[in-house]
Each structure stands twice: as C-alpha cells, then as structure tokens.
Design a protein around this nucleic acid. Sequence first.
DNA 1: CCTAAATGCCTGACGAGTCAGATACTGTTC
DNA 2: GAACAGTATCTGACTCGTCAGGCATTTAGG
Lengths: 164, 164
Amino acid sequence: MAADGEVVSARQAADDGLVVAFGRLMGIANRLELLLGRAIEQECGISHLMYEVLLILGRAGEPGLAMSAIGRAQVLTTGGVTRLIDRMEIAGLVERADDPGDRRGRLVRLTSSGEETAIRATRLHRDNVQRLLADQLPPDEWARFAESLRVLGHSLESQVPRLR
Amino acid sequence: MAADGEVVSARQAADDGLVVAFGRLMGIANRLELLLGRAIEQECGISHLMYEVLLILGRAGEPGLAMSAIGRAQVLTTGGVTRLIDRMEIAGLVERADDPGDRRGRLVRLTSSGEETAIRATRLHRDNVQRLLADQLPPDEWARFAESLRVLGHSLESQVPRLR
DNA sequence: CCTAAATGCCTGACGAGTCAGATACTGTTC
DNA sequence: GAACAGTATCTGACTCGTCAGGCATTTAGG
C-alpha cells in the first residue's frame, strides 16, 4: 500500500492504504452477507435484512417499535421500511398496530412465529459467525476487533442523516 | 452481550455477542456505503460500486481484465457485471475488447477518462475514509483493525462460491 | 387558536441487482 | 475428430430497494 501524498495515477489510487482498507471492509461485508444471508434464507426462509429486523424488534419488546426507528437502525428509507414490513407481515413474522400516542405512527412488534424464527435463525447464525469470523483470528485479536467495531459503529450512527 | 449457551428467547438472540458484532459490521458497511458512496456520487457522478471497479481495473493495468474476474472481486453475478460494465462503458469510463486468447471472453480496461475519474475520486475518498474511519481510533488500534480486516478478507475470499 | 412547518407512513415510477436460460466457444476423452 | 461437459458472456423476467410526491397528524410560533 502506498504512503501518503498526492495521488497521480490509477495504479497509485488502487494501492492506497486507506482506500484498500475500506475496500476490504466492504468486500468482507458483501461476502458475509452472501454466505450468512443464504444460510439464513435456506434454513429459515427469510432474508438477512428481515433477520436483523427480527433482532431489533426482539430487543425492543413491548409495545413495539415505530417504522421510523427501524429505518434508522437499518439505514432504509421510509418507503423501504414500509415494503419490508409489508412482506414480513404477510409472512406472519410481525404485526402492525396503531400507535396510541401518535395517530400518524404505527408500532411494529414480533408475532410468536417471528420470535421463534428469530431464535431458530440465531442458533444457526451464531455458529456461522463463529466459524467465518471469530475463528479466523486469535481470541485476543478478535476481542480487539469486536471492540473497534463497537467504537466505529457508535461514531457512524450519529453521522448518517435520516433517510426519507 | 450474552454468554454462550442455548438461545431460548428473541431478547437473548438480539443480545448475543457474536450476532451483535456481525450486525455492527454490517451496519458500519451500510453507513459507510451511504456516506462515502454519496460523496463520490456527488463529486464524480459515479456509484461506489463503479469506483471500486475503476480501482480494480487500475490495479490490473494492460491488457485489461475479464468480466468474470470483476464479478469475483466484487461478488456480483455474471449478469450483474454485464450490466454494470454496460453503464460504465456508456459513461465512457471503461472499454471492452475481445480477448485474443479466448474468443468467448472480453477484456475490460480503463479509458483515460476512467483513469482520471479514479484519481479524482480517490483524493476525495481518501480524506473521507480518514475522517470517518481511521481518525475514530487511536493509530495503533487502527493499524490492528486494518490488519484484522486483511486477514478476514483473505480467509473469506476463498469461501465465497463463484456466482453465475 | 390558527397557520405553517415538520414528521410519519404510504405509493407509483424507476434503478440496479438476481436468477435462469440461451448462445458461443474451449478442453477433454475415447 | 466427434461428442460432451465446462466456461464466458448476454438477456428477459423478476425482486427489492430508492426517490419523489401525497395525505394525515403533530408541533411551534405569533
């Protein structure tokens, strides 16, 4: 990887350390999404995105979560959330209810089938994450890596604008 | 985050350490894609994916790269690559040529406009990666993080099946 | 209060990828 | 050297997200 300084050729651009690190991060995310997403899909019949929403809702508990909160957590536009929840509702994983505190809003919560699916998918998913990620690094490196993820995730959450 | 053991509630599933770490990784990737992708798009008029392809081609140099190699590098199906390169060709960033060594194949390479765009986008992108990622961790932690990315990326590359 | 701006969700049109099948060429095997 | 499996790319139908615009409701100000 190249040192700092002005980039004057495509070759140099491609070898820049920061740029490469970012590319690796995205490549890892893409490959994990493919490998783990397919596993969840085949085992439980839901997409990886749906799985993440099941987790968010499991964490939220009663009385449910606003659509907008799901969008913020998963970086989706409001339209995207509407359609995702539509599909999940049809699949029987979640249900919508009017928000008693705000008549514009709807609260989404897990159905019992959604809860079961979250649990079942997690058993599978845990093992896959262990195998594909955690086992690839010595335990202390993995711990440091996970901690860095926490820090970075935290700092990024505040910088992403709300999507409409 | 929960300790190891059987997962028996959605709440527990959502708090599992490995599952959370994976979710963070994906969340970071999504947010970076949004923030950095939009920056590139506004400044240079190309998507983040196109930018990555420009880098790959810059790295490859003459006489160009096969479509299938691009698909492997970016985790795209062959159909996806065809359409992406179609758009990039229309935009004047790359050009296709017949592969003299294999009459089924085509070689893709940067045009001079594509090369310029890669350089221009990288100047912008570098600074953004620095600010959003590297600056968020102490230098030694960032170095370790980047090294872990390298290791993980390497081990994952071999595990993703070829997409058709 | 009453209006204007902001917010929450939904919808039609579109963009960019997947999937599955088609076509064209290559390499192997008998 | 002919058949056949394998590989490289392209295409039509589809999926799932975005974007822009709409309506209902809430909130802030005068």
